[in-house]
């Protein structure tokens, strides 16, 4: 089963067609990269895939739930979707572990269990040794890994990443991709928006967006190459 499926999706913002007739599936274990110039619809696509927005027409299905039929989108998002953004949005007054615990506490999980889960996922991104440090005490790469840990906590299987390598240098950016790739290989589905070809190169499939439409994708030869 696909983790997220966009079926003939269109989105109109104030009369402007941000997306037109987009079809895209992301399966467990798959990393899909979306590339395109600014204004091509990348962010709109990511927001729709993560249930932050609803399509004007077409269907978006996240883990079997058609968004049109979901009444509590927030609950579905919390359960299924993790987000990693360019500006990390870590809370400066909270330690790395507390930042990662936060979404679980919002889910109603008790603090002790949330902390255990946070430490486990921080260990997965090789940061358990800095769990009690504050964001300003971490390097840029470490902060981004904490943000990824926060997106993963609670076994969410869909990870949406919007330019997650931001201003990181290329070696650190590669580490972030290595980490996302590792999560994919462990069964997560990752949808990555990037304008950097070197990071798109880590994907199983690269989709090129132009003016709200998928202009091309690297899909076919890759599938046959496997």
């Amino acid at each position: 089963m696909t983790v997220v499926s966009l079926q003939d999706v269109a989105r109109v913002h104030e009369g402007v067609h941000a997306l037109k007739g987009v079809n895209l599936d992301v399966s467990p274990g798959e990393l899909v990269a979306v590339m395109g110039p600014s204004g091509s619809g990348k962010s709109t696509l990511l927001n729709l895939a993560g249930g932050l927005d609803r399509p004007t027409s077409g269907r978006v299905v996240i883990e079997g739930h058609d968004l049109a039929e979901v009444r509590d989108l927030a609950a579905l998002r919390r359960r299924s979707v993790g987000y990693v953004f360019q500006d990390l949005n870590l809370i400066p007054a909270l330690t790395a572990a507390e930042n990662v615990m936060l979404p679980r506490e919002l889910d109603g999980v008790r603090a002790r269990q949330a902390r255990e889960e946070a430490l486990a996922v921080l260990a997965e991104v090789a940061l358990d040794h800095i769990a009690d440090r504050f964001p300003q005490e971490l390097s840029g790469g470490q902060r981004q890994r904490v943000a990824i840990a926060r997106a993963l906590v609670g076994e969410r299987r869909l990870l949406l990443a919007d330019e997650p390598t931001g201003a990181l240098d290329t070696a650190t950016g590669d580490e972030i991709l290595q980490l996302l790739r590792g999560r994919c290989d462990a069964g997560a589905a990752v949808l990555l928006v990037t304008h950097e070809p070197r990071y798109a190169g880590w994907a199983d499939k690269v989709v090129f967006l132009r003016d709200g439409e998928i202009a091309d994708s690297t899909e076919v030869p890759l599938e046959s190459a496997r």
Partner: peptide
């Protein structure tokens, strides 16, 4: 572009 991206992959 598609060919170069495949090469990059």
């Amino acid at each position: 572009r598609t060919a170069t991206m495949r090469a990059l992959q």
